[in-house]
Design a protein around this nucleic acid. Structure first.
Lengths: 100, 100
DNA sequence: CTAATATATAAACATATCAAGATATATTGA
DNA sequence: TCAATATATCTTGATATGTTTATATATTAG
C-alpha cells in the first residue's frame, strides 16, 4: 500500500509529470539543464527530482560536479504511468543544454 | 494533463484505494453497505465515492432509495491502476450487507 | 586547502486536501 | 403532502504538499 501511494503521490503534480515527459524525450540530463530548460528554481527542481527518484521513476548518477538524471526502467503500473505521460499532449520546454 | 492529474489524485488516498479494492471484490454495493462495512461516516464515504466517480473509476445507478456503486470498465492506465490495487496486500473490511 | 560551481536540504509561508459535523436533496410509503 | 430513509453537499479546523529563501554538502580547479 505504502509503495503504491508513494508511486501515485509522485505522479500527482504537474511539474513532476513534465519532468518525466521531458526526460522521456531528452534522456539523461543534469539538474542545471533542467533548471535552464524549465526556468525553475534549482531547489524546487531538486526537490521534485528527489520525489521522483524515491518513487522509483528516476535514477541518477554523478559525473563530476554534475548529477545526471534519467528515467529508470520500470514495469507494471509504473510503466503504464510513463506510457500515459508520454502520450499526454502538453507543451514541454525546449532543451537548453549545458555547456559541457 | 488535467484528466491524468484527476485520475492520479483520485488514487492518492488510502481510503479510496480500499474502496476500489472492496468494490473489485464485492461488485455492486450501495453506500450504506460501504458505510457499514467500513464503519465510516456517511459524508466521508460519499465524498470519496464522488471523487472516484468523477475520476472515472466508478459508476453509480439509483435503485429506489439506494444508490449502487460499482467499478467501471476502464482500460489503459486506469486499468493498470485497478490491476495494481487488486494485487495489493491490504486488509479489507468484511462485507456487511444491507437488509434489502 | 580554498574558491567556485553544482546539487541537496531546511525553514517559513501559502495552498490543497481530508475528516467531522451540520445541512440539503431525493425517494418511498403512509 | 408529510415523515422516514438514503445519499449528497457545505463549512470548519487540522494536516499535507508545494514554493521560496537561505543554508549545507559535494566536487573540481587552482
Amino acid at each position: 500500500m505504502e509503495e503504491f501511494v508513494k508511486t501515485v503521490s509522485a505522479l500527482k503534480d504537474e511539474t513532476r509529470i513534465k519532468i518525466l515527459k521531458f526526460l522521456l524525450k531528452y534522456n539523461e540530463r543534469c539538474v542545471c539543464e533542467l533548471e535552464a530548460s524549465f526556468n525553475m528554481l534549482q531547489s524546487r527542481l531538486s526537490r521534485h527530482l528527489k520525489i521522483l527518484k524515491d518513487a522509483g521513476f528516476l535514477k541518477s548518477k554523478r559525473k563530476g560536479k554534475k548529477v545526471l538524471y534519467s528515467i529508470k526502467e520500470v514495469k507494471g503500473f509504473k510503466k503504464a504511468a510513463l506510457d500515459e505521460i508520454e502520450k499526454l499532449k502538453i507543451d514541454l520546454p525546449t532543451l537548453k543544454e549545458c555547456s559541457i
